[in-house]
Design a protein around this nucleic acid. Structure first.
Length: 436
DNA sequence: TCTGGGGTCCTAGGACCC
DNA sequence: TCTGGGGTCCTAGGACCC
C-alpha cells in the first residue's frame, strides 16, 4: 500500500466515522421538543431492556442493555421519559441523515443504522476538520440529529477518534487522530477499541495490555494465537495500516432471521405455530425484498435462560430445501414442520425464531405470457402481497396460518407515533411551539 | 413478575474421498 | 493384518459488531 503517501503527508487520505449521538433517543426528541435536555430512554422489544439513552439518562447511571425492572426507581424519581422502540421512524431518520452526509462526501459506507464511514479523499488535511464540522451542522439543521465525527487514517483509528469526540462533550464534535499520536491512544481503554469485545479484553488485560497503545505495540504472533486473524487486523489498523476497506456497495445478506422473545411464555404448540408462521412469513418478505431465495431453513426455540429454577430446553431444526424458494406458503409449511419436530410439551418457551441461510439470487419472473408454471404464479402472488403490505401498513395480508402472529404475545406500552411514514400519525405543528 | 434482535466472520473437528 | 497423508466440505460454537 501507499508508500507514496510519505512524499505528500499533507494529502494523505483519511477516513471518517459519522456516528449519530444517542440515535434512538435523538429521534424521539426531534418530534417531541418537550423532552429535550431531559433524560430519555428507549426500550427493546417487549419493553425489556434499555437500548438507547440520552446523555442525561446516562448520567443517572442507567446502563446500556440494562433490564428495565432494575431501573424502575430511577425512572420514577427523575421523571425519565420512556419510549418503546420505533424502528420505522429510526430507519427513516437514518436515511435522511446519511443522504445529507453523502451530499457532502459521496464515498460513503452505511455501516449501521446510526453510523457511516466516509472517505475524505479530495479534502486537504488542513481542511478536514472544518469540512466535517460544516457537514455536521447541516445534518443537525436539516434532520435535527446531532452527530459526532472521528477522523483517522484507518477505520479503527477513525472509530477511536469518534470515541474521543464523544468523550469530550464540551468539544466541537469533530476529532482528528493523527496516525502517530500515541499519547491519545494511551488514553483509550483497550475495551473501547473497535473489534475488542468483553472476552478479548479479559484476555488482553490479563496479559498486561490495557490501552489502545498497548494493543498497537502487542506481539503479532501472540495476537494471532490468542485472538484470531481479525483481531490481528485490528492491531495493524492501530499502526495505521488499512486492513478494513471502505465498502460502498453493501454485500448481499448471507442470512435472514426473524425471532422474538415472548412477553409471557408459550406452553402449547397451538400457541407457537402462529408465531413461527409469522416469523417465516416476515423473513420471506425480506428474502423477496432483496431478490434472494433460501436454500436452508432453521427453526429454533428455547426456554427462559434467566430462570434456572425452571426446566430448560433449547433446540433447533435445520432443513435443506430441495429447491431454494422465497414463496411464503412453502416456507411457512416447512417452518411449521421443523418446529413440530423439536417441540416438546412440558416446557415454558420464551423465545423462538426462523432463520434462512444458503441464500441465492432469485429474480421474480414478471408478466409471463402464460400461467403454465406454478412458480410464476407464486412470484406474482407474492409481489402483490408485498405491495399491499407496503402501502397499507405491515401485515394487511398474510399467510392464513400466521393468524395474529405475535400480536398477542409481545408487549409495547410506550410507543411513539411513526411520525414520518404514516399520514395518520403525523406530528401536529403548533405555531406557538417556537422552534423554526 | 419483568432480561432485545439481527447480523458477520473464524476456527476446530468430523466425515468423506482419493 | 497393518498402516498414511492430504484435500474438501460441512457444522457447531464462539468471538465480534450495532
Amino acid at each position: 500500500m501507499g508508500r507514496r503517501h510519505l512524499d505528500h503527508p499533507r494529502s494523505v487520505t483519511m477516513f471518517a466515522l459519522v456516528d449519530c449521538n444517542n440515535f434512538y433517543a435523538s429521534c424521539e426528541r426531534v418530534f417531541d421538543p418537550s423532552i429535550e435536555h431531559r433524560p430519555v430512554i428507549v426500550l427493546s422489544n417487549n419493553d425489556g431492556c434499555v437500548v438507547a439513552r440520552s446523555n442525561e439518562a446516562k448520567e443517572l447511571g442507567i446502563g446500556m442493555g440494562q433490564p428495565v425492572f432494575q431501573v424502575r426507581d430511577l425512572i420514577r424519581r427523575h421523571g425519565v421519559t420512556v419510549r418503546s422502540s420505533n424502528y420505522t421512524l429510526y430507519d427513516d431518520m437514518s436515511r435522511r441523515v446519511f443522504t445529507t452526509v453523502q451530499s457532502f462526501f459521496p464515498k460513503m459506507e452505511s455501516y449501521s443504522i446510526d453510523e457511516a464511514f466516509i472517505d475524505l479523499e479530495g479534502t486537504h488535511l488542513d481542511d478536514m476538520i472544518d469540512s466535517a464540522a460544516t457537514m455536521r451542522r447541516a445534518v443537525l439543521q436539516w434532520t435535527g440529529i446531532p452527530v459526532s465525527v472521528g477522523i483517522g487514517s484507518t477505520k479503527t483509528l477513525a472509530k477511536i477518534a469518534n470515541h474521543m469526540a464523544k468523550r469530550d462533550r464540551a468539544g466541537p464534535g469533530v476529532e482528528l487522530l493523527e496516525t502517530g499520536d500515541d499519547a491519545s491512544l494511551a488514553s483509550v481503554d483497550v475495551g473501547d477499541v473497535w473489534g475488542i469485545g468483553r472476552r478479548w479484553k479479559r484476555t488482553l488485560v490479563a496479559h498486561g495490555i490495557r490501552t489502545a497503545l498497548d494493543l498497537k505495540r502487542a506481539d503479532d504472533q501472540w495476537i494471532l494465537q490468542r485472538l484470531n486473524s481479525i483481531g490481528h487486523r485490528t492491531v495493524l489498523e492501530l499502526r495505521g495500516r488499512r486492513a478494513f476497506a471502505l465498502e460502498e456497495e453493501p454485500a448481499p445478506r448471507r442470512s435472514i432471521v426473524r425471532s422474538r422473545s415472548f412477553a409471557g411464555s408459550i406452553e402449547t404448540w397451538d400457541a407457537l405455530a402462529p408465531a413461527l408462521a409469522s416469523f417465516a412469513s416476515r423473513a420471506a418478505e425480506k428474502l423477496r425484498a432483496q431478490e434472494t431465495a433460501a436454500g436452508v431453513l432453521t427453526v429454533f426455540l428455547n426456554t427462559n435462560w434467566f430462570r434456572p429454577d425452571e426446566p430448560r430446553y433449547a433446540n433447533q431444526a435445520t432443513l435443506k430445501l430441495l429447491t431454494p424458494t422465497n414463496d411464503t406458503p412453502t416456507l411457512v409449511r416447512h417452518a411449521l414442520q421443523a418446529g413440530r419436530h423439536i417441540w416438546r410439551d412440558g416446557f415454558r418457551f420464551k423465545k423462538a425464531g426462523v432463520r434462512f441461510t444458503a441464500l441465492q439470487p432469485h429474480r421474480p419472473v414478471q408478466m409471463h405470457l402464460f400461467d403454465a408454471l406454478d412458480h410464476d404464479r407464486s412470484d406474482r402472488a407474492m409481489q402483490t402481497m408485498d405491495r399491499i403490505n407496503r402501502t397499507m401498513g405491515a401485515d394487511m395480508i398474510r399467510s392464513g396460518s400466521a393468524g395474529l402472529g405475535t400480536a398477542g404475545i409481545t408487549r409495547r406500552r410506550h410507543g411513539s407515533p411513526r411520525y414520518t411514514t404514516r399520514w395518520d400519525e403525523l406530528v401536529e405543528a403548533h405555531a406557538n411551539r417556537g422552534k423554526s
